[in-house]
Design a protein around this nucleic acid. Structure first.
Lengths: 212, 212
DNA sequence: ATCGGGCTACGCAGATTTGCGTAATTTCAA
DNA sequence: TTGAAATTACGCAAATCTGCGTAGCCCGAT
């Protein structure tokens, strides 16, 4: 161990912050070089000459959250790696964080071992994501209008698919061996049920529900 | 260490398989209890009474691939955990594998340390995904018609968005303070450029390219 | 300075959608 | 078995889309 890993800690809850600090100080290879209660304070510390290897940022913070803080860090202090912590098991948040340039992502319910592992990996220049994070990414995106889909009859779903493919009532009628007028009726019933504006709404719904 | 972790190894390339076996036997807490050249052989070994804790399955195998083998294992030998290995950095494959019930997923370029970590975690009942796997999940899905989007002028994209929201030419014209006929012209030009069938195609394109 | 591309606008005819009805048959559950 | 929902079908008028064309204006590039 040539040198300790210097960490800057940011969390808006003092108790949580102090708790983390105590935990981190049990690790003999880390040194906490600063504390901040929000993203703005993090930036100020860095501007005042703090030189941590890693910024350990809570996402939920007032004034400036962890995401915006990451952006600011990557703008002006590229050498500082970021590990983001959060309570929210939110797929989009993870994606956004990685896009902003974080090197690691953990949920707050991880073990000290995992936090330790993350710090060491990130200090080496690797990335680290906890298993929980990966599982969150694998969870299929929640579909808000799934209940609406069950409102539709089998036939209506069939027709919805064809409409979404750009076929006209006439074409659909030929394909299903029914009158084009019947197709119209179905289409209109679907529009009623889904309360969407016309064909555009139907296609949007179809795409979102992966009916193609 | 009360007992060694028993592993069943499956890869269709004998050299690779033997290589893995040699690596695994360097770990004092594992014991290789069987080898198979494809998924079918894995199942046969299990039927013949093999009782591994973990099946380490290559994805690419003839006769029966790792995914189908996982499905079969989870059907009849629920106690056997699966770690899948592959050369393909493919998001959909990871998702499919997890859906089938694998406990771990690694790419073949991982280190022995990571493989070791994965085995121990999975043996404990946890999941394990390598950092590479997680990064693959975070990679945005490649968008095949991105080049087409650049064909459209700013104005056309603006109108495409509004069309996709279900507005009529008249409504769009009012909103943009231009003639509805002009909107028609733009819409038709877009349909020409994208070579899609009518409004339905426009909305599909818009949704896929996240213009909403 | 000329030329092409983007933006604007209009005409017209035919196809299609939309919004309002009505209604017969089937099917499935109460 | 009785009734509700699904599926089928039709009418009609207004609005809209589609596919064809033309054309003036502005701006940036050659």
């Amino acid at each position: 161990m040539e040198q300790k890993i210097k960490i800057l800690l940011a969390d808006d809850h003092q108790l949580v912050r102090k708790g983390f600090r105590a935990l981190l100080e049990e690790l003999d290879f880390v040194e906490v070089v600063g504390e901040a209660a929000n993203g703005k304070e993090v930036i100020q510390l860095l501007r005042n000459g703090a030189k941590p290897n890693i910024a350990l940022l809570d996402y939920e913070m007032p004034v400036m959250n962890g995401l915006d803080a990451t952006e600011a860090i990557k703008q002006d202090f590229l050498g500082v790696k970021v590990i983001m912590l959060t309570m929210l098991q939110n797929k989009e948040l993870v994606q956004a964080a990685v896009a902003k340039g974080v090197s690691g992502f953990l949920f707050k319910n991880t073990s000290l071992e995992e936090l330790s592992e993350a710090i060491q990996r990130v200090a080496k220049g690797d990335n680290y994501f906890s298993t929980e994070v990966t599982l969150t990414l694998l969870k299929p995106t929640h579909n808000p209008d799934a209940p609406l889909l069950s409102l539709l009859s089998d036939r209506e779903i069939e027709i919805l698919k064809l409409v979404a493919q750009g076929l006209s009532s006439t074409e659909i009628g030929q394909q299903l061996f029914i009158s084009p007028r019947t197709v119209d009726t179905h289409r209109n019933n679907i529009i009623q049920k889904l309360e969407v504006p016309g064909i555009a709404g139907l296609v949007q719904f179809a795409v979102r529900n992966k009916l193609l």
